[in-house]
Amino acid sequence: MNQDRELQIQAFLDGELSGRQARKVEQWLAGDSEAQALLRELRATKSALGGNEPQLTLPETREFYWSKIQRQIEAAVPEHEAAQASLWLSWRRYLGPVTAVAAVAMLALFSIKEMGFDEADRHLAEIENLSEHASSLSFRSQSENMFVVWVYNKDQQQSEEEADFADEAVIQ
């Protein structure tokens, strides 16, 4: 059997032949046991693969994975918009809407807390970048009771993005 025939059998299996071509293939399949064996093998492989793509788990926590994505999304947004979005996100992330309004009202009206403080206030954080070259993003891991501030070099981030863009330009 030559390669042309083999590929036609495959195309027949995959529904890639026209009606007329498919009927022609069916005819010589009927009289060719080797071709039938090949079709059976291809069909079994196709059937085994279909719906059985290996299932994998991403090897990073939800928070850390998302923090990197968020950073890249915000890097593409003007800074004042990013600051507003980030502030909005940390409010929504750490407080329910009602608690957020209550916490703001509390902080505005009272400067001194009673002994201990409520759960909402415990998670509030104020982060300020003090270097023009550095930026940061923050997130909280509830399961590990950890608050993280990830600091990165703004200039390096920008030149990596420019290098990627230059690569793409060269390929095209």
Binding site: L130, A134, S136, V148, V149, V151
Partner: peptide, 28 residues
């Protein structure tokens, strides 16, 4: 917590810190 890198201030964070909680500043 103020992070100082190579004698220059890099960032500043203010937060309540309860016992058992970690405040982590990190980078590449």
């Amino acid at each position: 917590v103020k992070l100082i890198g190579d004698h220059n201030p890099v960032m500043r964070g203010v937060k309540s810190l309860s016992k058992g909680e970690s405040f982590v500043i990190a980078g590449d």
